[in-house]
Design a protein around this nucleic acid. Structure first.
Lengths: 368, 368
DNA sequence: CTCGCGCCTGATAGCGCTATCATAACCCCG
DNA sequence: CGGGGTTATGATAGCGCTATCAGGCGCGAG
């Protein structure tokens, strides 16, 4: 470990960059902080020097000089543990790159008052911005409390962000449509859906995508069997039982998340159905249960880490804007999702009869 | 947000403390860094002032002045997601309090070469110490690579730490013995154990505790049915099947972790056994599966977050010692565990009563 | 042509802490 | 009781960066 003198590692400093670009350190500082009032040519030559020297600012010095060491809060509530750990990994990468700290706190309660109080307690820890992964991203008490304190928040996977809000999400509508298309392409015509938690906006988006795909294939989306779930394994059991008890048993079930999909597989097994031969099951999220169950789940992967990192980045940009007194406005980042094809989905056992009206649960609809 | 001038928040600085204690800032610095060469009376008055002013050092200034911003590495490999997220929460709290940064990295491979290489790659990121949660805490290639680079490491839940090593753990022997005692006290005499992964030293400790409890109750520990598991759900299925196929079917199964215990419950249900009436099942760790399955698991809780926090703390102390050129020696922290009594364990029923599967694999009982 | 008002840039002075060295206090022994 | 060696404390000078303000420059209005 070369730790020469008091100098950190052989690090390049802002002075080195300034010298190389032929400007003052202050100008370099302005460039790296994206402040206005720097001529374009100057900015360019500074950036050139930064690149050439492979300079990266010392975050300790930065927070010391700026008189504010940035702490970003992360408030979470019993999400799936798999989701949380991936989220933390991403958030941590984001804060590391942004040179700030992450303070995390649990908020287990679902009561509005408790949530508001947890938020207030959290705010006393001097966080300057908050990241809210689901399901807290939908919590009005928390959002209200943060707004009242003037602390900016980024919501993640919030279906319907508010005015001037920050949000990171995937396109749930498109993802659900793609998965449904996948099932339809394999020949399924009787597809049941287990909806997610009603308080979670993304649930509605997924249902919308499901229905849109059906409609696009000439099926009546309103005739599709849909049962309410609440993202828990147990709610999935109940919903799957109901779906399989229907007169026209679905050949495929699309669940609003992996836990409920895993439950559907369990129910299928209990009914003596072979997955995927007798029943295809598709999940959503690609979390741990997806690969724990057998057969492994075909599901939709959300780039959870990347979303968390994007959230932190968005928040840091916002904080800088606020500090500079710039006008703020809504910002949203939509990241790419991915269909993960595993073993829980296959063509229905009886040879697909795509155009036979009688085979379908859904009455074919007159093309609009 | 009172952000007066450039001053952070109305923060007390080292100068304030120095003035109050009637010494120089340098002396205060010495006290808070636990350096020698400070008279006891001086130290006391400084500490008094620190407490009175509720002073806490500014970590940004600290790392800037010290010319080294501490980065602590966390290398993990596919642990249970639940374990990892709890671990991260604790580690983060530790780094926050220690005023340092956490850099985390995954090391998925189990090959020795890949692990060594991942470690080397990790070391280029300038981490000054590494925390190793299980199962990596048992990885010789990684430990060797770190030792070669002169980077101190803290292992967590390592059964048999090396010379001059740092380790944080719970007393697996005592915990397993307590759980077994609990089963024995309820009247169980035929208790089967599913061992954990053989590469994990803690597995052996848990088995030892199990046997010690049996012996203390006058039972022959070598006659107890024991099957090998590997901490995975699937390995638990196999092991549980074997235990239940034995001529003298156990009335209780103690699994080396929660995943395998959950598997044992599944197998029991398949055999038409009611848990806990016909078969008691105990787990270990108190991770997510413990409360996901029905009935919920009686298990041993490890204070995962606290262990991670302790690991970071231990590492920071070691780093400071190294920097000060002090002699280093082994250090271990043993944290308290806790028996969590839920519904999967009860007194054995006199006559094992087989039940039909139709009574409901998952059907929850009327909950009080 | 000159004044004034933008825009861009740089000099200076810290942010809170610690490394370094100098100094002061002390102690042990001959 | 005075020298040589400790041990305890303090003064000073930065660590790398940014806030602040003063100045320079260009350009349109008076």
């Amino acid at each position: 470990m070369a730790r020469a003198g008091r100098r950190g590692r052989g690090n390049v400093t802002i002075e080195d960059v300034a010298r190389m670009a032929g400007v003052s350190a202050m100008t370099v500082s302005r460039v790296i902080n994206d402040e206005g009032n720097v001529r374009d040519t100057t900015r360019a030559s500074v950036q050139e020097a930064i690149k050439r020297l492979n300079y990266s600012p010392n975050s300790a010095a930065r927070s010391l000089a700026a008189g504010q060491s940035v702490h970003i809060g992360l408030l979470y509530a019993n999400p799936s543990a798999a989701y949380l750990s991936q989220f933390l990994v991403g958030a941590l990468e984001g804060t590391r790159r942004g040179g700030c700290h992450l303070v995390i706190e649990a908020c287990e309660s679902e009561g509005a008052d408790e949530q508001a109080e947890a938020t207030r307690r959290f705010l006393t820890t001097e966080v300057e911005g908050v990241v809210l992964p689901p399901p807290l991203s939908e919590s009005q008490p928390i959002l209200a409390e943060l707004a009242a304190a003037g602390i900016p928040a980024v919501t993640v996977a919030m279906g319907r962000p508010r005015e001037d809000a920050l949000n990171v999400r995937i396109d749930d509508f498109a993802a659900a449509r793609e998965m449904t298309d996948h099932l339809l392409a394999l020949g399924h015509r009787q597809i049941g859906m287990i909806k997610g938690h009603p308080a979670h906006m993304a649930s509605a988006e997924r249902l919308r995508g499901f229905r849109a795909a059906l409609a696009a294939h000439g099926l009546d989306p309103d005739a599709a069997p849909v049962e309410q779930g609440y993202f828990t394994f147990r709610s999935g059991l109940v919903a799957a039982e109901r779906l399989l008890a229907r007169p026209h048993r679905p050949t495929a079930i699309f669940a609003g998340n992996d836990d409920m999909a895993a439950a559907a597989i369990g129910v299928a097994h209990r009914h003596g159905l072979v997955v995927p031969d007798d029943l295809s099951v598709a999940g959503y999220d690609d979390t741990a249960p997806a690969t724990t169950v057998w057969p492994e789940l075909t599901t939709v992967r959300q780039p959870i880490s990347a979303m968390a990192e994007a959230a932190v980045e968005l928040l840091l940009v916002r904080l800088r804007m606020m500090r500079a007194g710039m006008r703020i406005q809504a910002a949203e980042r939509v990241l790419a999702h991915e269909l993960v094809i595993r073993e829980s989905v296959a063509a229905p056992r009886r040879a697909a009869r795509p155009r036979s009206a009688a085979s379908g649960l859904y009455a074919p609809r007159a093309k609009a």
